[in-house]
Design a binder for these strands. Structure first.
Lengths: 168, 168
DNA sequence: TTTTATTTTCAATTTATTTTGAAAGTTCAG
DNA sequence: CTGAACTTTCAAAATAAATTGAAAATAAAA
C-alpha cells in the first residue's frame, strides 16, 4: 500500500470514527492529518489536503486547541502560523479523558445532585424507583470519576505496561 | 422538588448528555423514561409523555433493543406490547461498553491492521512518522480492548467495591 | 374468513449541524 | 503611518440527521 493512499484512508476513517463519538468529522480529520505530519503545517496546507474552506479549518483548529490536542507554532522569521499535534498518543488519550470528564461527567454529577430531594411520599413506587435510580447512577458516576482520575494521574505506561496485570 | 418535575429534568438532561456521546437525543430520552418507570409501558405512553410520533418511538425502541438495554414484554391477555429497561445500572454500563467495543473499537483495530504495510523507503520521515503513529494507536487500542474485556467480565461490584483499590 | 387493534416502514418534511466565502479584523515589515 | 499578508468572524447556503404521519404489514379476535 502506498503511503499517500494509507494516509488518506486513515484520515477519512478517523473522521468517520469521530462522528460516532460525537466529534465533528472535519475536526477529527484535521487531527488525524496533524498526527501523521511530522512537521508543523499551515492552514493553507490543511485546506488543500482536506479540500475544505479557510473558515472551516480555522474554527476546527481553534476547537482542537481548546482540547489541548494541537498547538499554534510561530516560526521565527515566518509570517504564517503553523500547527502541530501532540504526538504522544498516551498524552492524547489522557487529555481527551480529562476534557470529557470535565465537560460531561462533572455536569452530569452536578445534575444528579440536584435531583436528590424529592417531595412527597417516599413509599410511593414511582418515587422510590426514581430516587433509587438517581442514587445508583450517581454512585456509578462517582466511581467512574475516581477511576478516570487515577488513570489520568498514572504514568504513561499505564496502557502499555504493568497496570493491566492488576486486573487479572 | 416535585417528582414529576425531577423526572422531566432527568429525561431532558439525559437526552442532552446523550447527544454529546453521539447518541440520538430521543433514544436517550426514551431510555431515561424507561429507567424511571417501575412498570413496563407502551408505545402510546412514550408518545404521550415525550410528545413524539409513533414512528419515532418505534424506531428508537428498536434501536434500544438492539443494544440490549430494553426488552419487549407481552402481558398475557393484553393486545399491546409493553417495554421495560434493564434497571441494574451496572449491567447497563457493561452492556454499553460491550456494544461500543464491538461497534467501534473492533472496526478501528481492523482498520489499523490494514494500514500496516507501507511500500517505499522506511527511512523517509513521513513514512516513519506514519508507521510509528499507526503502531502506537494500535497498541493503545489493544490495551484498551483488554482492559475493557476485564471490566466487562468483572463482577458487578467492580465499580462499587474493591477494584478501585488496585489503582491506588 | 373478515374485522379490528397494533406495529412497522419509509418518503417527505422539519430541524440541527456543518461548511462556505467574503468582509472585517489583526499584525507586522517597510 | 500604510499596505500587504494573514487570521478571524459569521450570515447564508449546503448537508446531514431526526421526525412525522399515513399507508402497508402483521397479528389477534370475532
Amino acid at each position: 500500500m502506498k503511503l499517500s493512499e494509507a494516509k488518506q484512508q486513515f484520515i477519512s476513517s478517523w473522521g468517520a470514527f469521530g462522528t460516532q463519538w460525537g466529534i465533528n468529522r472535519t475536526m477529527a480529520q484535521i487531527h488525524a492529518l496533524l498526527l501523521v505530519s511530522p512537521d508543523p503545517i499551515t492552514q493553507d496546507d490543511i485546506m488543500e489536503q482536506l479540500s475544505i474552506s479557510r473558515g472551516n479549518v480555522n474554527m476546527n483548529i481553534r476547537d482542537l486547541i481548546s482540547w489541548s490536542l494541537v498547538e499554534r507554532i510561530i516560526l521565527p522569521g515566518e509570517r504564517k502560523e503553523y500547527f502541530s499535534a501532540e504526538k504522544d498518543i498516551w498524552k492524547v488519550a489522557t487529555q481527551i479523558i480529562k476534557e470529557r470528564k470535565k465537560r460531561e461527567l462533572d455536569p452530569m454529577l452536578k445534575l444528579l445532585g440536584q435531583l436528590d430531594n424529592i417531595d412527597g411520599d417516599k413509599k410511593d413506587k414511582e418515587t422510590k424507583q426514581f430516587i433509587g435510580m438517581i442514587a445508583d447512577i450517581k454512585k456509578l458516576g462517582n466511581q467512574a470519576d475516581k477511576v478516570l482520575d487515577v488513570m489520568i494521574k498514572a504514568e504513561e505506561n499505564w496502557f502499555t505496561g504493568s497496570v493491566l496485570k492488576m486486573f487479572k
